[in-house]
């Protein structure tokens, strides 16, 4: 059995749906609230001059952007799973994928917090990005072997899947609204 698993080819190293869903849930749990927080922060201003319908449309655009972002981000662990040897990533896809997402998006949050039109572009952070990416990858592989951490991450990722029951249908409806508005 062990030998057989080691023989998995590229296509077979694409994670299965039950592996993908928890990792996707972690991505959703980080990306959607980031935008939602800003949406509610702006809401009081929009209520000054926008109708409920207009605010609803802004919300749909936001959901579509978030949907695209989450799918793009999911490609990162999937790509790693496909490209790296099976033992390195595929076998612990949920643990390492979740860790990669938490650390990667965490760094992106830090980066985003430094973006301001009033301040110079944070070039130093851009220069540091390759080193930080390498550090994140190293951490993923090191921490991914710690048993209890893996257990916690698996539990967390599985529990976060509850949010997909809201985010996916709302995003798909939003996508439909945006498409209809821009086709007709």
């Amino acid at each position: 059995m062990h030998e057989k698993v080691l023989d998995l080819n590229f296509a077979q190293r694409i994670p299965k749906l039950e592996q993908l869903v928890p990792v996707y849930a972690v991505i959703v749990a980080m990306i959607y609230p980031w935008s939602l927080l800003r949406f509610f922060w702006r809401l009081s201003s929009w209520l000054y001059f926008s109708t409920v319908g207009e605010i609803a449309v802004i919300f749909t655009y936001m959901m579509v952007v978030n949907l695209i972002e989450t799918i793009l981000v999911l490609l990162a662990p999937v790509l790693m799973s496909v490209l790296l040897p099976q033992k390195w990533f595929y076998d612990k896809f949920i643990t390492k994928g979740s860790l990669l997402i938490l650390l990667g998006l965490g760094y992106l949050m830090y980066f985003d917090n430094h973006l301001s039109f009033a301040a110079p572009f944070p070039l130093d952070l851009v220069y540091w990005t390759p080193a930080i990416a390498a550090a994140i990858l190293a951490l993923v592989f090191l921490l991914g072997w710690i048993g209890f951490l893996g257990k916690i991450l698996n539990e967390l990722a599985n529990r976060l899947t509850i949010f997909l029951y809201i985010s996916i249908p709302v995003s798909l409806i939003s996508l439909l609204v945006v498409l209809v508005r821009n086709i007709f």
Binding site: M30, I31, W34, S35, R38, F39, R42, S50, E54, V57, I58, T60, Y61, M62, V65, N66, I68, E69, L72, V73, L105, L108, M109, F111, D112, N113, H114, L115, S116, F117, A118, V178, R181, N182, I183, F184
Partner: peptide, 29 residues
């Protein structure tokens, strides 16, 4: 072009507004 006013409000003036940390966490930066 068919929904420019609200796309402007939703994208350029909100998700990708370049005045402060973007509301789009990944595509914004």
């Amino acid at each position: 072009p068919k929904d420019q006013n609200l796309a402007l409000r939703a994208l350029d003036d909100f998700m990708f507004k370049m005045d402060n940390k973007p509301a789009s966490m990944v595509l914004g930066p």
